Computed example of a mutant assay.
Amino acid sequence: MNSDLFLDWLKHLVHHVKPSAEDPILLGADNHSTHCSLPVILFCRNNHITFLSLPPHSSHFIQPLDKELFAPLKAAYASEAEKWLIQQPEEVIRLTDVAGISKEAYTATA
Results as ranks from 00 to 15, higher is better:
D4N: 03
L5E: 00
F6G: 03
D8F: 02
L10A: 03
L10K: 03
H12D: 05
H12I: 03
V14E: 02
H15E: 12
H15R: 11
H16M: 08
K18G: 00
K18H: 01
A21F: 08
A21W: 08
I25M: 09
L26V: 07
L27F: 04
G28M: 08
C36M: 05
L38M: 05
I41L: 01
I41E: 03
F43Y: 14
N46D: 04
N47E: 07
H48Y: 15
I49D: 03
I49Q: 11
T50H: 15
F51L: 15
L52A: 11
L54F: 15
L54Q: 11
P56K: 09
H57L: 09
S58F: 07
S58W: 11
S59R: 07
H60T: 11
F61R: 13
I62F: 10
Q63P: 08
Q63W: 02
P64K: 06
P64T: 14
D66M: 05
E68R: 10
E68F: 07
E68C: 13
L69T: 15
F70D: 11
A71F: 05
P72A: 10
P72L: 08
K74W: 00
A75P: 00
A76T: 01
A76D: 02
S79L: 07
S79R: 13
E80G: 04
A81W: 07
K83V: 11
W84C: 04
W84Y: 14
L85I: 09
I86P: 04
Q88C: 05
Q88H: 14
P89A: 10
E90P: 03
V92D: 04
V92F: 02
R94F: 02
L95M: 04
L95K: 14
D97S: 14
A99E: 04
A99K: 12
A99Y: 08
G100W: 09
G100M: 09
K103I: 12
K103C: 14
Y106S: 15
T107K: 14
T109Q: 12
T109S: 14
T109N: 14
T109E: 13
